[in-house]
């Protein structure tokens, strides 16, 4: 990402003022990754386009509620996007067992997510990729099923025909390793700056 792009905190400032520039800049920063995520989850180009529009309209409508001091626009956009996409592909089943973390809660908590590091998610893509490459094949598989297909632990176990305990331990180690890769990267970046 070119360094002249506005930081999330500046975008939030503009969105709070209901300045359309802010939305354009947010789109330029996150539109592509959100679209890629929608496409990966829905496998449907026209649905993905609808979802992108819906996402940014939602962002525009919520703009005032963001806190520029937190600077976590990316966390909100990508958390809501992933949730919308999973809802889209699983609309009939989505209310099944265990699906209780609502989009409203994600909305609320991601708006006030960490302020520790000003780096946007996109700036950390390389560490995320590297972290993922270091996972073993089973860890990659369970992480993809949970993240991109929205499967629960027991659904993954059924899909892979593996014991639930095994799936849980693969998922735990996959997420633990990704957590360290992502948080480690942000700690390093703030250390360098």
């Amino acid at each position: 990402m070119p360094s002249h792009e506005k930081a999330d905190a500046q975008l939030i400032d503009l969105l709070r003022k209901r300045d359309a520039e802010g939305l354009a800049a947010a789109y330029d920063r996150y539109g592509r990754i959100a679209y890629s995520l929608f496409l990966r989850i829905t496998r449907d180009q026209s649905a993905s386009e609808d979802l992108v529009q819906e996402l940014f309209i939602r962002l525009w409508n919520r703009g005032r509620e963001f806190d520029a001091s937190k600077g976590t626009l990316g966390v909100w956009i990508l958390s809501i996007a992933r949730n919308m996409a999973i809802d889209h592909v699983r609309s009939a089943q989505a209310r099944l067992a265990g699906r209780s973390c609502s989009i409203e809660l994600i909305d609320k908590l991601s708006m006030s997510a960490h302020s520790a590091d000003p780096e946007s998610i996109i700036d950390r893509a390389r560490s995320v990729d590297a972290g993922f490459r270091n996972l073993n094949a089973n860890e990659k598989r369970v992480l993809e099923l949970a993240y991109f297909e929205g499967l629960s632990q027991s659904e993954i176990a059924a899909r892979l025909k593996e014991p639930l305990g095994t799936v849980k331990s693969w998922t735990r180690s996959a997420l633990g390793r990704m957590r360290r890769a992502i948080q480690g990267a942000s700690a390093q970046e703030s250390g360098n700056s």
Partner: peptide, 25 residues
């Protein structure tokens, strides 16, 4: 949420049309 949001970069990069930007904005 920071960790899970960052996982979105694992989606294969795809390019939305210019028209989508215009329509959205």
């Amino acid at each position: 949420l920071q960790t899970t949001a960052a996982l979105s970069v694992l989606a294969d990069p795809a390019e939305p049309t210019k028209d989508l930007r215009r329509r959205t904005l």
